[in-house]
Design a protein around this nucleic acid. Sequence first.
RNA 1: GGUCCUAUAGCUCAACUGGAUAGAGCAGCUGCCUUCUAAGCAGCAGGUUCCAGGUUCGAGUCCUGGUGGGAUCACCA
Length: 590
Amino acid sequence: MNLLETLQNAVVKAVDQCYGHQIEPDQVTLNVTRKDFTGDYTVVVFPFTKAARKKPVEIGEELGAYLVEHVAEVHAYNVINGFLNLVVADAYWSAFFREALATEDYGRGAPKNSTVLVEYSSPNTNKPLHLGHIRNILLGWSCSQILTAAGYAVNKVQIINDRGIHICKSMLAWQKFGNGETPQSTAMKSDHFVGKYYVRYAQEEKAQKAALVAAGQQEAEPAILGEARQLLLRWEANDPEVRALWEKMNGWVYEGFEETYRNLGVHFDKNYYESNTYLLGRENVQDGLARDIFYRKPDGSVWINLEAAKLDHKLVLRSDGTAVYMTQDIGTALLRYADFKMDRCVYVVGDEQNYHFKVLFEIMKRLGAPFAEGLYHLSYGMVDLPSGRMKSREGTVVDADDLMAEVIEEARKNSEESGVITGLSAVEKQQINTQIGLAALKFFILKVNPQKRMVFDPKESVDLQGHTGPYIQNAGVRARSVLRKAAQLEVDYALAGSYTELAVAEKDLIALLYRFPAVIQQSARAYDPSVVAAFCYDLAKSYHKFYHDYSILQAETEAAKAFRLQLCQLIERTLTMGMRLLGIEMPERM
RNA sequence: GGUCCUAUAGCUCAACUGGAUAGAGCAGCUGCCUUCUAAGCAGCAGGUUCCAGGUUCGAGUCCUGGUGGGAUCACCA
């Protein structure tokens, strides 16, 4: 039983003993005591006033006295207004600390025997990844890591939108204007290379459109659009030549994506491709039709009536019998179940698709899919620039690769200024600058609640001071530095156990570390990495202050030194793990 | 128009299921490197939590009604 439960149960018992009133443990409001008051946990006593028929302060006194007397973990109490602050015994914190220190992967939850599928990224293959994808990818990766740490078996997948008119446009432009050039011959990153032809297509279409307008034919369609459509038809008819070109160009895109993923430090367990899944789902719809889950209109199209779920009627098969997006998603979900037998499935997709997923989940429920209750849309808001929305037309789209290069370059400049790593090799420097730059970028994005639309200021994202990834890395680096020095000394760690008079700062750090496993669970429950991000920042901040105020290697006694070094160890491990859950590496020095 | 999301310091963000005096960072101003890494620490200043009602011992948080911002409501994906 953890401390919170122990205290809650103790309060239940105290209320029963003192007032003969029965309550449930979850009716006890127990908060972490705010900084300005003494204590570790606070019981809100207002809810007991009716049962006790006494003033809140009196109740607090009585409950506090009872708890101190009967509960070993409660060492002291004080009452302010209707709040009963409990001071947890140092002995409890010390015992916890020793146990946590001895736990290799402190923070990790017990295996839950439950499988979660996380779908994220899911790009189109016509252009390179941009800032919006970065938020998606970081959220997806981080959630996967957090769910894993919470005890779930996690599989990461993406579905690649590799078919459709968009890729045909790139193909067409390459055929027309490419003169056979390749990513190799132009030394371009291959997804950017393909993206270049998508842009080239758009230019051509615009030019043709302008020519038509000039000729007074506003309504006419640019010839090149017809050609692109023709290409799509040939693709659908399995034309070998078109398929070969399609495979070549998509191959280039995948190569480029892989590089970006690698640089971001993420990967997938399985890729799904729309060219394989876009025909899926029709049989499931036929099946559902037979079970009267769907209905057919006179024109042959198939629909579902979701009015009972406060949604609309939704089309699931066109009148010509072909699949729509929804059909495909139904089929893909069932295919994935066949592949992974997941209990839950998380879709990391932008919030413009909220309605789509509401409908999808409702349909899966009605189809009786075994995982239907475990479907979750991790919906995130768009990333705006200080100047407003990113618009490809205005060229304000922030490219993922450029952005990463930029933050790393900023880290490099700062490293040179600080001079700490001047002695290292070029490779080591590069590694450290990469770690720092990416930390800045990743933390900047992940510290924000996913649900909210966020403003991304490139200038601010390369900040390395304050509420940032590098600030947290720096706390870890300081701890490592001390530990490195300690390794050169004779330290008798057996003495740590005799250090029992904890300073407030030390106890606060332990109390913070104590929350780590619960933070991981909460973050997993909410599918929200910002919970872990906030924790890492809190811990780093407390450690920085501790580091400033207390001497570790020159501690007053050998026992204090041994204890503080162990404290540094556990903090370093916890920060490293917490940051890893965000996809952020900890550098050795900085 | 219907539905959903959102509004907190000059700016970017916090505030666990309703709990104490709404917190951080940035930007601005002051201090602290002869001592374990100053990418740090300490301090000053900055708020009618969009508005109006309501529920409650207690509301940034819940309810109702407004206002601003956004998304969505395709035989597109």
